[in-house]
Amino acid sequence: MKNILYEIIILFALFTESIAAQNTQIKGFENVDASVTSDTTTRNHFALGQFDLFITSQITDKVSFLSETVFLYYNNGFKIGIERAIINYHFKDYFNLSVGKLYSPLGYWNNAFHHGLVLQPTITRPKIVSEGTSGGGLPLEDLGAQLNGDGITKINFGYNLMIGNGIASTPTNDFNESKSMCLNLHAEPIENLKFYISGYADNIPKGTTTIQGVKTTQNINLQILNASIAYRDGKLPIELIGEFYNLRTMEPDSNNSASSNGYFLYFSYKIRKINLIPYVYYDRLLLDTNDPLFFKNNIASIAFGLRYVIHPLSAIKLEYKYSETGLIKYQNRIELQFAIGF
């Protein structure tokens, strides 16, 4: 018994030492929201945000790991989702390999802000880059392999090329032979001013449940094109993010096609002395009536907000949003969010 105890102590010591050598960091994000709305179908309420468990590990100088596990309340119960699980191998600045479940390298917002809402400049995400459960429809995550590089030439040119299972898949299987492809090209010609163009292509077989939960009745070829601009962390006390997405679908069996657009523009001014950031953003989703991937719900909204940054990992946001949607005509909503990282 004594020997077993010694062995356990030695194993524990070795295990903790190896963790220290690997520099493993366990962090988390959480937020609590309160909202008042003019929508009669929803009551004014408090809401617990997603609990995000964020783990990174620098295993060797070239091998690293990142995972993000989210606990959220959905459909009458707490659900656990592995949002990201990525193994990286860093060959050179301009050539790295990532495998696992990644955020699709579409645009800027999708990779810069996701579940850790303390980092996100607004309370709600723009509709086009929202999760399917919140009205979005883009394949924000994918499982596969990605080549990426940065710091190419003086304009800091970079690229991400991802091959994945695509929409018709589970974390362990793919429902069709064809793979999704996503390419993101970006550059920073002026310090902190970034430009992105990206594209995505996937074949979705008949009978697939799409991101929004629509069941497809035919085979669909999906193409997404994007252009984005972002200015953040610069000398000027402003932030600017603008993104445009075009989604084209083609049903080869019936020759039906559709083209939908989504775009948003975010602008803020930093009052540095008091860590207060007033912001405004306009958000638009224009869906083609023939679009087979979405529930038809066009949206136009404008939001005015204030973000008070207590600490880089602690922020309070207050946001007023006016929305016009296909389903509930118009809505006024005031939301308060206390978001932290730890």
Binding site: F54, F65, L66, N88, A112, G116, L119, P312
Partner: peptide, 9 residues
């Protein structure tokens, strides 16, 4: 640094 840590680990 926190944003870079979150974005790419």
């Amino acid at each position: 640094f926190i944003e870079k840590h979150y974005e790419s680990g």
